[in-house]
Amino acid sequence: IEEVKKIVSEIQSKQLTRITINGNTYQVNSPEELVEYVRKVFS
């Protein structure tokens, strides 16, 4: 979970619009959307 928080804060600070998780690239339009992807991947 700490690793996830680190990734999320990194993305928020860079305002990235794409994230790659487990080889899948997602278009991310908002931090909320990012959190949803993270929940799916780590749930």
Rank of each mutant, 00 (worst) to 15 (best):
Ile1Tyr: 13
Ile1Ala: 13
Ile1Cys: 15
Ile1Arg: 10
Ile1Thr: 12
Ile1Lys: 10
Ile1Asp: 13
Ile1Glu: 14
Ile1Leu: 14
Glu2Gln: 08
Glu2Leu: 10
Glu2His: 08
Glu2Ile: 13
Glu2Thr: 08
Glu2Arg: 07
Glu2Ala: 10
Glu3Met: 14
Glu3Lys: 11
Glu3Gly: 07
Glu3Leu: 15
Glu3Cys: 15
Val4Arg: 04
Val4Leu: 15
Val4Pro: 04
Val4Lys: 03
Lys5Leu: 14
Lys5Ile: 12
Lys5Arg: 12
Lys5Ser: 13
Lys5Trp: 14
Lys5Thr: 12
Lys5Phe: 13
Lys5Ala: 14
Lys5Tyr: 13
Lys5Gly: 11
Lys6Asn: 09
Lys6Tyr: 09
Lys6Cys: 12
Lys6Phe: 11
Lys6Arg: 13
Lys6Leu: 10
Lys6Ile: 08
Lys6Ala: 11
Lys6Met: 10
Lys6Gly: 05
Ile7Gln: 03
Ile7Ala: 04
Ile7His: 03
Ile7Asp: 04
Ile7Tyr: 10
Ile7Arg: 02
Ile7Asn: 02
Ile7Thr: 03
Ile7Phe: 07
Val8Met: 09
Val8Tyr: 05
Val8Arg: 03
Val8Glu: 04
Val8Gln: 03
Val8Pro: 02
Val8Phe: 07
Ser9Pro: 02
Ser9Ile: 12
Ser9Arg: 13
Ser9Ala: 14
Ser9Trp: 14
Ser9Cys: 12
Glu10Tyr: 13
Glu10Gln: 08
Glu10Ala: 07
Glu10Val: 10
Glu10Pro: 02
Glu10Phe: 12
Glu10Asn: 06
Glu10Lys: 06
Glu10Trp: 13
Glu10Met: 13
Glu10His: 09
Glu10Thr: 07
Ile11His: 01
Ile11Pro: 01
Ile11Asp: 01
Ile11Lys: 01
Ile11Gly: 02
Ile11Gln: 01
Ile11Ser: 01
Gln12Leu: 15
Gln12Phe: 15
Gln12Gly: 04
Gln12Cys: 14
Gln12Ala: 06
Gln12Thr: 10
Ser13Met: 11
Ser13Ala: 12
Ser13Leu: 12
Ser13Glu: 12
Ser13Gln: 12
Ser13Val: 09
Ser13Ile: 12
Ser13Arg: 12
Lys14Arg: 10
Lys14Ser: 08
Lys14Phe: 05
Lys14Cys: 13
Lys14Asp: 02
Lys14His: 07
Lys14Pro: 04
Lys14Ile: 04
Lys14Met: 12
Lys14Gln: 09
Lys14Asn: 08
Lys14Trp: 12
Gln15Gly: 13
Gln15Pro: 03
Gln15Lys: 12
Gln15Thr: 04
Gln15Glu: 05
Gln15Leu: 10
Gln15Met: 10
Gln15Ala: 10
Leu16Glu: 02
Leu16Trp: 05
Leu16Gln: 03
Leu16Met: 06
Leu16His: 03
Leu16Thr: 02
Leu16Pro: 02
Leu16Lys: 05
Thr17Trp: 06
Thr17Tyr: 08
Thr17Ile: 11
Thr17Gln: 03
Thr17Val: 09
Thr17Glu: 01
Thr17Pro: 02
Thr17Asp: 05
Thr17Leu: 08
Arg18Ile: 10
Arg18Gly: 04
Arg18Asp: 02
Arg18Ala: 12
Arg18His: 07
Arg18Trp: 11
Arg18Glu: 09
Arg18Ser: 12
Arg18Met: 12
Arg18Lys: 11
Arg18Thr: 10
Ile19Val: 07
Ile19Lys: 01
Ile19Asn: 00
Ile19Phe: 04
Ile19Met: 06
Ile19Ala: 01
Ile19Cys: 05
Ile19Asp: 00
Thr20Leu: 06
Thr20Lys: 05
Thr20Ile: 08
Thr20Trp: 06
Thr20Tyr: 07
Thr20Arg: 05
Thr20Glu: 06
Thr20Cys: 11
Thr20Gly: 01
Thr20Asp: 03
Ile21Gln: 00
Ile21Val: 05
Ile21Phe: 09
Ile21Asn: 00
Ile21Asp: 00
Ile21Gly: 00
Ile21Met: 03
Ile21Arg: 01
Ile21Glu: 00
Asn22Ala: 08
Asn22Met: 11
Asn22Thr: 02
Asn22Asp: 08
Asn22Pro: 01
Asn22Val: 03
Asn22Ser: 05
Asn22Gly: 09
Asn22Arg: 10
Asn22Glu: 04
Gly23Arg: 02
Gly23Val: 02
Gly23Lys: 03
Gly23Glu: 03
Gly23Gln: 03
Gly23Leu: 03
Gly23Asn: 05
Gly23Cys: 08
Gly23Phe: 05
Gly23Thr: 02
Gly23Ile: 03
Gly23His: 04
Asn24Met: 14
Asn24Thr: 15
Asn24Glu: 11
Asn24Pro: 00
Asn24Ala: 11
Asn24Val: 15
Asn24Gly: 03
Asn24Lys: 14
Asn24Tyr: 14
Asn24Asp: 06
Asn24Ser: 10
Asn24Gln: 13
Asn24Trp: 12
Thr25Asn: 05
Thr25Met: 13
Thr25Tyr: 08
Thr25Trp: 07
Thr25Ala: 05
Thr25Ser: 09
Thr25Glu: 08
Thr25Asp: 05
Thr25His: 11
Thr25Ile: 10
Tyr26Lys: 04
Tyr26Gly: 00
Tyr26Asp: 03
Tyr26Asn: 00
Tyr26Ile: 14
Tyr26Cys: 07
Tyr26Ala: 03
Tyr26Leu: 11
Tyr26Val: 12
Tyr26Met: 07
Tyr26Arg: 01
Gln27Met: 09
Gln27Tyr: 08
Gln27Trp: 09
Gln27Thr: 11
Gln27Val: 14
Gln27Lys: 07
Gln27Ile: 13
Gln27Asn: 08
Gln27Phe: 14
Gln27Glu: 12
Val28Thr: 15
Val28Ala: 15
Val28Ile: 07
Val28His: 15
Val28Asn: 11
Val28Gly: 15
Val28Pro: 00
Val28Trp: 11
Val28Tyr: 14
Val28Leu: 14
Asn29Gln: 09
Asn29Pro: 06
Asn29Ala: 10
Asn29Leu: 14
Asn29Val: 06
Asn29Thr: 08
Asn29His: 08
Asn29Ile: 05
Asn29Tyr: 11
Asn29Trp: 09
Ser30Ala: 04
Ser30Cys: 06
Ser30Pro: 10
Ser30Asn: 06
Ser30Val: 05
Ser30Gly: 03
Ser30His: 05
Ser30Thr: 12
Ser30Arg: 05
Ser30Lys: 04
Pro31Asp: 03
Pro31Cys: 10
Pro31Met: 10
Pro31Glu: 02
Pro31His: 05
Pro31Leu: 07
Pro31Ser: 09
Pro31Gly: 01
Pro31Gln: 02
Glu32Gly: 06
Glu32Ile: 04
Glu32Tyr: 09
Glu32Asn: 07
Glu32Thr: 06
Glu32Phe: 06
Glu32Cys: 07
Glu32His: 06
Glu32Lys: 05
Glu32Trp: 09
Glu32Ser: 07
Glu32Met: 07
Glu32Gln: 09
Glu32Arg: 05
Glu32Asp: 09
Glu33Val: 04
Glu33Ser: 03
Glu33Pro: 00
Glu33Leu: 12
Glu33Gln: 07
Glu33Cys: 09
Glu33Asn: 05
Glu33Phe: 04
Leu34Cys: 05
Leu34Lys: 00
Leu34Tyr: 03
Leu34Glu: 00
Leu34Val: 02
Leu34Asn: 00
Leu34Phe: 02
Leu34Ser: 00
Leu34Ala: 02
Leu34Ile: 01
Leu34Asp: 00
Leu34Gln: 00
Val35Thr: 05
Val35Ile: 14
Val35Gln: 04
Val35Met: 09
Val35Arg: 02
Val35Ser: 04
Val35Trp: 08
Val35His: 01
Val35Pro: 01
Val35Asp: 01
Val35Lys: 02
Val35Leu: 09
Glu36Gly: 04
Glu36Ala: 09
Glu36His: 10
Glu36Ser: 06
Glu36Thr: 04
Glu36Asn: 06
Glu36Tyr: 06
Glu36Pro: 00
Tyr37Ser: 04
Tyr37Thr: 11
Tyr37Gln: 08
Tyr37Ala: 09
Tyr37Pro: 00
Tyr37Lys: 09
Tyr37Val: 15
Tyr37Gly: 01
Val38Lys: 00
Val38Cys: 09
Val38Ile: 14
Val38Asp: 00
Val38Asn: 00
Val38Leu: 10
Val38His: 01
Val38Ser: 00
Val38Thr: 01
Val38Trp: 04
Val38Pro: 00
Val38Arg: 00
Arg39Asn: 07
Arg39Gln: 10
Arg39Cys: 13
Arg39Lys: 12
Arg39Glu: 07
Arg39Gly: 03
Arg39Tyr: 13
Arg39Ile: 13
Arg39Met: 14
Arg39Ala: 04
Arg39Phe: 11
Lys40Thr: 07
Lys40Glu: 08
Lys40Ser: 10
Lys40Ile: 10
Lys40Gly: 06
Lys40Leu: 12
Lys40Ala: 10
Lys40Asp: 05
Val41Tyr: 13
Val41His: 13
Val41Arg: 04
Val41Leu: 15
Val41Ser: 04
Val41Ile: 14
Val41Thr: 06
Val41Pro: 00
Val41Trp: 13
Phe42Ser: 02
Phe42Asn: 00
Phe42Leu: 11
Phe42Gln: 01
Phe42Tyr: 11
Phe42His: 02
Phe42Ala: 01
Phe42Asp: 00
Phe42Cys: 12
Phe42Met: 09
Ser43Met: 13
Ser43Tyr: 12
Ser43Phe: 13
Ser43Pro: 04
Ser43Val: 07
Ser43Asp: 10
Ser43Ile: 10
Ser43His: 09
